[in-house]
Structure formats: structure tokens, C-alpha cells
């Protein structure tokens, strides 16, 4: 039985625990043993990308310590996954890091799964977040998984490749441009006719969803893991 360590990420831990729970459910359903190293906290991306590499380094060191010895680390976030994989080795001087997989990479590449036995009877659009598509190069892994979800209708998102405008501290340092980008993303999501906008990053979804709620736009946001965790027996929303 494959065994992984879940890096839930600090944002998911505090603000979107349902995403972490969903990731655990999907992985366990597919026969994976999930461990959650409880010392884990944050990857340090915010510090690093805001210009504080010295403040990010202790977190990279801590991450390496917390996840040492695991065969695989699975992260339900494209952005944190990319940061850990691309930047941590640079910060630490390439000290044999554990293999880190974003959730869909692990499902598709390692488990060879396409149909994860999910059921989600809704019309959805998928937003390829910038870091998951340009840094991790997830490609069509997320949509391959989504297409095999029973009851799910996947519709095209206009301007899918365009950034939503979150950008970490960019969202508060350049709030006007960030908001303008967010408003366009919400407009595109509404235009797609989807009920849910799905992505692999909750921080982007927090920005898009917060923009949508403020403008009362008819679109809901949801992390991909929660779609994949939803089954006919235990559909999304029933137990939450």
C-alpha cells in the first residue's frame, strides 16, 4: 500500500480544512495510506515572494525536517507545491528534498488514476491557476480527472489562462489592478454558464470567490479535491 505525507498548507489548514479532508478521502479511497506530520506549518512562499528570503529560509528548513524520510509528499495546492519543489532546493542548497506532488500529479502520474469514483452532478468550469499551469505544468491532468467524474458537466472557461489577480501580497499591494483582474475572471466564469468554478489553489479561489460574493455574481468556487472526494454515497455538501 503506497504511503504519503499530506502537506495541507497553512491556508487550507486554517481557512479551507474541507479541502484537506477531501484530499485525505480521495487518497484513502484509492488505497493510499495518508499520514499528516503534525509539526508542519507553512512553506514560506508569502515571505519569499514579498521579498523576504531570509524569513522564508527557516520555513524551508522546517519543511525539509518535517517531511524527511517520506517517499512522497502530496499537496492540494499548485502554488505551494511549485514553491516547495522549485524554490526550496535553491534556498537550502539542494539537500535531497522529498518528492513533492500536487494532488492531481499524484493521482494521475503515480497512481495512474483517471476515474477516481467521484460523483458531482453539476456544471463546472476549470480555472488553471498560474502556478499550477505555468510552474508545475499540470497540463490536462485536472481536466482528465474532472471528465471522469460521474454526473459532472465540464464547460469551457473563456480566457482560462489569464491570471485571476490574486498574486499573494499583490492582492493588497496593488488592490485596484488585482480587483480589476478578479472582476474579469468572475465575469468569464459567469459567462461560461458553470455553477462552480473549480481550481487547484484555494488562495486564488478565495480571491475569485470573495470578488464573486461581493458582486453577487452567480458563481460558486470550489477546490478540485472536494469535487473528487464527492461520491454518490457521500456527495459534496451532505456532510459538510
Amino acid at each position: 500500500m503506497p504511503k504519503i505525507a499530506l502537506f495541507v498548507t497553512c491556508v487550507n489548514d486554517v481557512a479551507f480544512p474541507s479541502t484537506g479532508i477531501a484530499a485525505v478521502r480521495v487518497l484513502e479511497r484509492l488505497g493510499v495510506e495518508v499520514d499528516f506530520p503534525e509539526a508542519q506549518t507553512c512553506c514560506g512562499q508569502m515571505q519569499y515572494n514579498t521579498g523576504y528570503p531570509a524569513e522564508a529560509k527557516p520555513l524551508a528548513e522546517k519543511f525539509a525536517g518535517d517531511f524527511r524520510g517520506y517517499d512522497a509528499v502530496v499537496v492540494p495546492s499548485g502554488s505551494c507545491g511549485a514553491f516547495v519543489r522549485d524554490v526550496h532546493p535553491r534556498l537550502l542548497g539542494a539537500d535531497d528534498p522529498p518528492p513533492v506532488y500536487e494532488l492531481t500529479e499524484y493521482l494521475v502520474d503515480v497512481l495512474g488514476a483517471q476515474d477516481v469514483g467521484a460523483y458531482f452532478p453539476h456544471r463546472v468550469a476549470y480555472h488553471p491557476t498560474c502556478h499550477s499551469s505555468r510552474l508545475l505544468k499540470l497540463g490536462d491532468r485536472p481536466t482528465r480527472l474532472l471528465r471522469r467524474v460521474a454526473g459532472l458537466e465540464l464547460v469551457e472557461l473563456p480566457g482560462a489562462q489569464e491570471c485571476c489577480g490574486f498574486g499573494g501580497t499583490f492582492s493588497v499591494k496593488n488592490p485596484d489592478v488585482s480587483a480589476a483582474m478578479g472582476a474579469d475572471k468572475v465575469a468569464h466564469a459567469v459567462e461560461s454558464g458553470a455553477e462552480y468554478l473549480i481550481a487547484a489553489d484555494n488562495s486564488c479561489l478565495m480571491h475569485i470567490g470573495g470578488t464573486a460574493r461581493r458582486s453577487e455574481a452567480p458563481i460558486k468556487t470550489l477546490h478540485l479535491a472536494e469535487v473528487l472526494a464527492s461520491t454518490a454515497d457521500s456527495p459534496y455538501g451532505a456532510s459538510a
Partner: peptide, 22 residues
């Protein structure tokens, strides 16, 4: 303030993931 001028913040859940796991 910069965030909330144009966006709602999510209301935090009652429990963190960590607590759920425990």
C-alpha cells in the same frame, strides 16, 4: 482594508484541518 474594499473574506470554519485530523 485593501482586500475588503472589493472582496469578501471567507468566514473561517469552526475547526482547522489539524483539529479535524486529531
Amino acid at each position: 482594508k485593501a482586500w475588503t474594499e472589493t472582496r469578501d473574506l471567507p468566514e473561517l470554519p469552526k475547526q482547522t484541518f489539524r483539529q479535524w485530523w486529531k
